[in-house]
């Protein structure tokens, strides 16, 4: 899932709060659910791309900025996860998480 905010944007969401002027793009990497949608889905990784001015908690950037963050799976420590992403081939993106009990 991708969230694009051109121009002046105020972001209040959990992962990338802040204020930006220019171009702000957030890509959320959610795991494939295999058709199961009842269970809550947590984001496996997050990529932000900013062109312009960005004010975030504890950080000010001017210019081009891109960052990819991968949080630790919080609920279960026995997991294998794969994230494969190409900007030129977004349809080939692979986001998989397997849990082992």
């Amino acid at each position: 899932m991708q969230l694009v905010a051109p121009g002046l944007s105020l972001r209040l969401q959990k992962f990338t709060p802040g204020l930006s002027l220019g171009w702000h793009e957030t890509t959320y990497f959610f795991p494939e659910t295999g058709g199961t949608t009842n269970a809550p889905i947590s984001v496996l990784a997050l990529q932000t791309k900013v062109i312009g001015i960005n004010l975030a908690p504890g950080r000010i950037t001017i210019g081009f900025s891109r960052r990819l963050a991968v949080p630790l799976p919080a609920e279960d420590c026995n997991v294998v996860q794969i994230i494969s992403y190409s900007e030129t081939r977004p349809k080939d993106t692979v986001v998989v998480q397997k849990e082992f009990k």
């Binding site: 504890g58 950080r59 210019g63 081009f64 960052r67 963050a69 991968v70 949080p71 630790l72 919080a74």
Partner: peptide, 20 residues
Amino acid sequence: CTSHLVFLEEDHFGLKAQFE
């Protein structure tokens, strides 16, 4: 298991200031 690990990879071109 409840601790938070963050793997972070970033590129930046321009001016960047970080505050505590």
